[in-house]
Amino acid sequence: MRATDTDLWHRLADYVIGPADAAFTFAQRLARENRWSGDYAARAIHEYKRFCWLACEAGHEVTPSDAVDQAWHLHLTYSRDYWDRFCPQVLRRPLHHGPTAGGTTERTRYYDQYAQTLASYEAHFGQVPPGDIWPDARRRFLVDPRAVRLNPADVVILTRGQAYGVLAAIGLALVALVATAMF
């Protein structure tokens, strides 16, 4: 039986996070806080629900992607919704979020656990997890942890290509300036 055929999945699929009368929805807040499009935030919420299904049914500890973890962290701030409605009525069990203790052993444990989560996702949902939300374990644990969250009001953010273009333009301007000064 596929995950999407289970009662748990139907409860998860029907569940809307947060108060029904909120003017600023959970999805809108998730998008704003992460600088995501509304579509990407909706997809991350869908994947968060799949992660929750796996947490309950995979038969092993699971580890979320960073995007899924962002949805989970935000959901935890809706504490009444999370603990009074989501866990008892939808999951029908508590789902605690525990941080890593750090170090090589923990990194290896979470790396392996995440790889197993991806394999279980594919086995239970019958498809490969979307790579833009669920990157491979190497990316999740070796590349992405180097990322930092920035407030764009405080910094100028350029892609690597844009930065190279700016540096090339500055270099050409300096060459032109030196050439002009020499003549």
Rank of each mutant, 00 (worst) to 15 (best):
A119R: 13
T108K: 15
L172M: 01
E61G: 14
Y48V: 07
P129A: 14
T25Q: 09
R35Q: 06
D14K: 08
A13H: 06
D7I: 00
T100L: 14
C56A: 15
I133M: 13
L142Q: 11
E57C: 05
L91N: 04
I170R: 08
D69I: 06
A163E: 14
G126F: 01
A55C: 00
H60R: 11
F183L: 11
V166Y: 06
D14N: 14
T117Y: 01
S120R: 12
Y15R: 10
T63M: 12
A119W: 01
I170V: 12
A169D: 12
A119T: 15
P94I: 08
P64W: 10
A176F: 04
R85G: 00
L95K: 09
R109V: 05
A163D: 09
D112W: 00
Y82F: 01
T117S: 05
H60F: 06
Q162E: 13
T77Q: 12
C56S: 11
P88W: 05
L95M: 15
T100M: 11
P129Q: 11
T77V: 10
Q113Y: 00
Y48L: 13
G131P: 04
L91S: 04
P129K: 06
R107K: 15
E57I: 00
G171R: 14
A173F: 10
L76A: 13
D21E: 12
V178L: 10
A58V: 09
V175I: 13
R107W: 09
H73D: 11
A101D: 08
D81G: 02
H124Y: 08
V62I: 09
R138P: 00
E122G: 03
P130Q: 08
Y114N: 04
G165I: 03
V148G: 09
A179C: 02
P152V: 10
A101N: 07
Q89Y: 02
W134S: 07
F86I: 06
W134T: 08
P94E: 06
Q113D: 06
I170E: 12
W83G: 03
Y40L: 13
A23T: 01
A42M: 09
V90R: 03
H73Y: 08
L95P: 04
A31F: 02
T104H: 14
A169E: 11
L54H: 03
P99G: 10
A123R: 12
L158D: 05
E57L: 02
E106G: 03
Y15F: 10
Y40V: 07
Q162D: 06
V16C: 05
D14Y: 02
Y15S: 08
